Simulated scan of single mutants.
Amino acid sequence: MENQTIGNRLKYQRTLKGLTQEQLSDASTVGIRTIQRIEKDEVTPHKQTVKLLASALEVCIEDILIIDNPNEEAIQKKWMLLIHGTPFLGFIPFGNILFPLFLWIHKSKDNKVYDLHGKSVVNFQCSLTIYFIISLLLFFPFPGFNFFLTGAIVLFGIIITVRNILTSINSGTCYYPLAIPFLKAT
């Protein structure tokens, strides 16, 4: 059942049992107006109200109440660490792009957060690679100057990547400056 609000879940369980709102009100001693407001997602019911409704519908409270999975946040933090940290596996040519790209392709459908962060990482790593190649090509017209520019680009990439690993794990946000938006955010 993919109904994600308490109101949708309650309505689903009520119609599954073939009850009207009035019948559910009589069976649960919860007012009909309260049931209507819950089903329209106008209010968040008290736990006792959900218990009365679940008992009247003869279902588990978990069938109505959305209970957050405490492990889900830990799993999301691990994926954030992986998505933002895989560019450090760039010892394989273009690995800094390919590893995050594969992760983004794999996880983008699971969660909008993974989609947004994956696009940000891929955009930044593609941009960084282009800047790096340009700095290497500047060796021919400006020998010696490109050494400092190339070093600055590598250092910039490391600092921004580490900062985004930490902010994505702690606050769920990321910011990659100077990233060319190859993959647009939807």
Rank of each mutant, 00 (worst) to 15 (best):
123 N>Q: 09
142 F>T: 03
30 V>F: 05
152 A>K: 08
41 D>G: 05
114 Y>P: 04
18 G>V: 13
90 G>W: 01
57 L>N: 07
14 R>G: 06
84 H>G: 07
107 K>S: 01
55 S>N: 15
65 L>D: 10
181 P>K: 02
152 A>L: 14
87 P>A: 07
26 D>Q: 15
12 Y>N: 02
114 Y>M: 07
142 F>Q: 05
164 N>Q: 12
126 C>Y: 11
8 N>M: 14
181 P>M: 05
132 F>P: 11
121 V>P: 00
156 F>Y: 12
14 R>P: 01
146 N>H: 15
89 L>T: 04
94 F>N: 14
132 F>Q: 13
125 Q>F: 04
6 I>V: 14
93 P>Q: 13
147 F>R: 14
180 I>L: 09
96 N>W: 00
42 E>R: 04
127 S>E: 02
41 D>K: 01
156 F>H: 12
1 M>E: 14
35 I>M: 04
21 Q>D: 10
126 C>P: 00
136 L>E: 15
176 Y>M: 04
141 P>H: 00
108 S>Q: 15
59 V>K: 02
109 K>R: 13
139 F>L: 10
177 P>N: 13
157 G>Q: 08
34 T>W: 12
92 I>N: 09
40 K>N: 11
96 N>P: 03
119 K>V: 11
96 N>S: 11
72 E>H: 11
160 I>V: 15
67 I>Y: 13
116 L>R: 11
17 K>I: 09
125 Q>K: 03
72 E>W: 03
4 Q>F: 08
3 N>F: 05
173 T>D: 04
25 S>C: 14
87 P>V: 00
121 V>K: 03
143 P>Q: 01
183 L>C: 13
40 K>H: 03
75 I>L: 15
77 K>S: 10
182 F>H: 08
81 L>T: 06
150 T>C: 10
84 H>Y: 13
53 L>P: 12
110 D>H: 12
120 S>I: 06
70 P>H: 11
48 Q>W: 05
152 A>I: 07
179 A>W: 12
2 E>D: 15
64 I>Q: 10
110 D>P: 14
145 F>D: 05
140 F>H: 06
40 K>C: 11
135 S>C: 05
82 L>G: 08
87 P>S: 00
7 G>M: 05
64 I>D: 10
97 I>H: 10
50 V>Q: 06
123 N>K: 12
173 T>G: 00
62 E>A: 06
130 I>M: 03
44 T>W: 07
183 L>D: 03
117 H>K: 12
143 P>T: 03
168 S>K: 10
102 F>M: 07
83 I>V: 00
5 T>P: 04
32 I>C: 10
65 L>V: 05
146 N>G: 02
178 L>D: 06
172 G>P: 01
11 K>A: 14
115 D>Q: 02
107 K>T: 04
88 F>Q: 02
40 K>Y: 00
170 N>G: 08
176 Y>S: 01
107 K>F: 15
77 K>P: 13
8 N>E: 15
48 Q>H: 11
99 F>Q: 01
176 Y>C: 13
111 N>W: 07
53 L>M: 02
7 G>K: 08
162 V>E: 00
42 E>N: 00
118 G>E: 02
88 F>D: 02
38 I>D: 02
63 D>S: 14
158 I>K: 13
107 K>A: 06
161 T>N: 09
15 T>S: 03
